[in-house]
């Protein structure tokens, strides 16, 4: 997910060159930046945007998989999927908390998501159409997310790095449970195997898009790399992901839907076909097949829950008043 968090990030700052140089020196010395430390406004804004979008991705990411909890075909899978989707909610919660240290509230971030102002990872705007998608999402989508997230554990901003360490620890079961699902299908009945292949066909390219535009087209990458908010480029991470995933697909006897995919001896990695960037930008800009439905579902949960949150606050107020009266 989540290198897409930088799309549209405005890292420009007004600070003096001396100030910026001093800050850069701390970053270069691998010092962590903590919330109350002085920091360039652009650094703060970039982080709020990136962490917020990362958090939104986790929260919206609960929906496509949540779509299959009630239909999981065995009780073992049902429990694992429920625990997995719950984890994603936890990731959102940790990340909102990390962003809140920068002075933005969860309510503000939520409203930005619901109004369409804030983005989230494009991958979650695709529909989950079969049980196999639960496997493929764990395997590819969580797999791609992990590629992105492991370097973020060393991000220069302390609260983000700490949240990511927690997230990465929890993620380790997600990809494995996904791969296990796909493996069971690939080794199952012909219908199950076809279901797995169809799912891979639909999720492969969107998964590659998760790493964001090519480095040459990624305007905000350089500043974020310098500030160590980002540690590897989009293309580096995408390459790593492909190289790791192709043998996993081969093991399953599944075919990656890219006729141009082939091993390149010289670079020691796979070459891949052209990514459909028109589709990517269409989805990023909110025209993905499920985009409207995803926001609608989040908005419904938020609006329907308003009376509950208000009641909790009202009750807390009454408790406080009673406590004071009793003293």
């Amino acid at each position: 997910m989540y290198s897409q968090g930088l799309i549209g990030a405005d890292g420009r700052t007004e600070e003096t060159p001396e100030f910026l140089a001093r800050f850069q020196k701390r970053i270069d010395a691998e010092e962590k930046i903590e919330p109350k430390d002085e920091m360039p406004e652009g650094y703060r804004r970039t982080l709020i945007r990136q962490i917020g979008q990362h958090a939104h991705s986790e929260i919206v990411g609960m929906l496509p998989e949540g779509n299959w909890i009630t239909r999981a075909p065995s009780l073992r899978r049902k429990a694992a999927l429920l625990a997995k989707v719950q984890d994603e909610g936890g990731h959102g919660l940790y990340l909102y908390s990390a962003a809140e240290t920068l002075g933005v509230s969860r309510e503000e971030m939520t409203e930005e998501l619901l109004s369409g102002k804030a983005k989230y990872s494009s991958i979650f705007n695709y529909p989950t159409l079969s049980w196999a998608d639960m496997g493929t999402i764990g395997w590819l989508v969580d797999g791609a997310a992990i590629m992105n997230q492991i370097p973020l554990c060393r991000c220069s901003f302390g609260p983000y790095a700490r949240a990511m360490i927690r997230v990465c620890k929890e993620e380790s079961f997600h990809q494995r449970q996904g791969y296990e699902i796909v493996m069971t299908l690939a080794q199952g009945t012909p219908e199950q195997k076809a279901m797995a292949q169809d799912s891979l066909n639909r999720w492969w390219w969107p998964s590659l898009m998760m790493f964001g535009p090519h480095d040459a087209d990624s305007q905000h990458s350089d500043q974020s790399m310098a500030w160590k908010i980002k540690r590897f480029t989009n293309d580096e991470l995408r390459q790593k992901f492909i190289d790791a995933t192709v043998p996993q697909a081969e093991y399953l006897g599944l075919t990656i839907p890219d006729p141009d995919l082939k091993w390149n001896e010289d670079k020691g990695g796979y070459d891949h076909g052209t990514i459909d960037w028109d589709e990517f930008w269409r989805v990023v800009k909110g025209h993905g097949p499920m985009a409207k439905d995803r926001i609608k579902a989040r908005k419904k949960a938020w609006d329907d829950g308003a009376w509950v949150r208000e009641a909790a606050l009202a009750h807390a107020e009454k408790r406080r008043a009673r406590k004071i009266a009793a003293e």
Binding site: Y94, R166, A306, E310, A312, L313
Partner: peptide, 29 residues
């Protein structure tokens, strides 16, 4: 809606160790 207050959470992994900050959350009380 009004903002639900933020809380800092500290967990003691086991007896003999100190409570350590692990993160935060929102709750009304």
């Amino acid at each position: 809606t009004a903002t639900t207050p933020l809380w800092e959470v500290f967990i003691r992994p086991r007896n003999g160790l100190a409570h350590k900050h692990v993160g935060s959350l929102h709750a009304a009380d």
